[in-house]
Design a protein around this nucleic acid. Structure first.
Lengths: 147, 147
DNA sequence: ATATTATAGATACATTAAATCTATAATTAG
DNA sequence: CTAATTATAGATTTAATGTATCTATAATAT
């Protein structure tokens, strides 16, 4: 079980977008090249981020993508959910006739508790938290490409 | 992203096995019927649990599977790892030439922290914890089939 | 010796992620 | 207004992986 490549691209793209001046836009081409992925595929991922309200897209010359939400108001969990959806990681698949709906699965209960621990942590991790660290390292984030 | 059906089967099978008398064995057939899965497929899952050292298998008449470890000494995390492996949920897939190994990914760092929260919780959840609850409910676990 | 049960290997099937292609719409520049 | 640029949508293809089946083999009990 692993997070999808799409989620990978989404998270890295968001960090990238957070690092460029807010009034500027950036095209899908450089974003894709940076991540070694085809622009057409990445654009589909980015569209999900647009629909989630994190970024804005403008077509045409000088168009591209840009953040429209404050980095302190975007959590990693939200980004992940925008791509992966928000279904629970574990779902009891016992479909026994005798199993009634109100009989909740004890295993599922525990698994959901565990997942919540992870989510609670990711809920506290804002995009700003990542970006801040990049600056702190005093490395040219874009040049080193070590996002 | 979701845990595999195999993990589902493994967890439920372990609870089932924990509920039968320790000296008795149970064949793959009833275990499979209980979970609405083919015996041949479930046996492959169970073999992984054998290799992990949780259960024992004996061929032949009156053979089958049985627990060989104490329920207080088996955690849900261990069972999950026996099926899913222990790779991290998130892996930075940026493979830029300019990216050196020692440049660790900030996103990955956070994601691993988050995953650890979940794992720490599952590490504390023993098979006994589940089984105990089943008894507490005073329901015939096997009859109600509401694992 | 026979019936029973697990295991291993090969294979097939199904689902989903990942990626590509084409056409369309929106925007800017000239 | 026209041409170039850029994002979007839809259909389609490819690849990867999870799920499942089949057959043969080995081990055990009666």
């Amino acid at each position: 079980m692993q997070y999808s490549k799409a989620t990978n691209y989404a998270l890295h793209s968001m960090v990238f977008l957070a690092l460029i001046p807010k009034e500027k836009t950036i095209g899908v081409r450089p974003l894709a090249e940076f991540q070694n992925v085809s622009p057409t595929y990445l654009s589909k991922v980015l569209t999900n981020l647009v629909k989630a309200g994190f970024i804005q897209s403008t077509p045409g010359v000088k168009g591209g993508y840009q953040l429209i939400k404050d980095t302190t108001d975007i959590t990693l969990l939200e980004i992940i959910h925008a791509i992966e959806g928000s279904a629970t990681l574990f779902n009891c698949r016992l479909n026994n006739n005798d199993l009634h709906d109100h009989h909740h699965c004890l295993i599922q209960e525990v698994m959901e508790e565990a997942e919540k621990k992870m989510e609670n942590h990711l809920k506290k991790q804002t995009l700003q938290g990542i970006v801040k660290q990049v600056d702190k390292n005093k490395m040219s984030y874009l040049l080193s490409k070590s996002v």
